[in-house]
């Protein structure tokens, strides 16, 4: 079913190859500019009316953000993960809040946590979870949460541990 759909829609939306995860779940990548048209067609003619989630994956090493729009057709029990790859430095994408009003929340969170902007999305710049955050958007891979916590919080004093291998060396054959 997923294959038929893919074959049908590929010419219009320049879809990438279909990656089938299991019978009712597949992923496909397409150019960012084709996203709104593709989602609209999915929603209006193919029954994929449920926006399950919208989130980002940071492929730092590849200089890209992946946006995943998880679309579900409940009647046919099909889920299609629609992927868009964004340049990490510009990190900008068309908003879909007019297609699914609830997308505004996802986009607001993505702005705050990943620094991906969606021009025109309502209340995009309002704080969602963080208050007074000035550091890198924290869900970016280059934000080091361990370093942050070490700077922000104090370790409990007095904790010392020993590596068994090194400890045994010091006890049993210190000279090597």
């Amino acid at each position: 079913m997923m294959r038929d759909l893919h074959a049908l829609l590929t010419p219009r939306h320049a879809l990438g190859p279909l990656e089938i995860r299991r019978e009712n779940l597949a992923f496909v990548t397409l150019p960012a500019s084709n996203l709104r048209g593709f989602l609209t067609e999915l929603r209006d003619t193919q029954g994929f009316s449920h926006l399950v989630l919208l989130t980002a994956v940071d492929w730092l090493e590849e200089g890209q953000f992946q946006l995943t729009y998880m679309m579900n057709n409940r009647a046919r029990d099909l889920t299609l993960g629609v992927r868009v790859m964004l340049d990490r430095t510009t990190a900008q994408m068309d908003s879909i809040h007019d297609l699914w009003p609830t997308a505004a929340t996802y986009q607001r969170e993505l702005k705050e946590m990943f620094g991906i902007t969606f021009p025109g999305s309502p209340r995009l710049d309002e704080e969602f979870i963080l208050e007074g955050w000035t550091d890198l958007p924290p869900y970016r891979r280059d934000f080091d949460s361990l370093a942050y916590s070490q700077q922000t919080y104090a370790e409990r004093p007095g904790r010392v541990t020993h590596d068994p291998r090194e400890y045994m060396k010091s006890k049993l054959y210190p000279g090597g």
């Binding site: 995860r21 399950v52 989630l53 994956v57 940071d58 995943t68 998880m70 993960g81």
Partner: peptide, 29 residues
């Protein structure tokens, strides 16, 4: 990457897991 869902008391609950070949998840949503 995969998406697993179930019906919790409040509706559709799901985990989107992305792996990159390492020993750590790339992303969990």
């Amino acid at each position: 990457e995969t998406y697993i869902k179930g019906e919790c008391s409040r509706g559709e609950y799901g985990y989107y897991l992305v792996t990159d070949g390492s020993g750590y998840p790339r992303r969990i949503n």
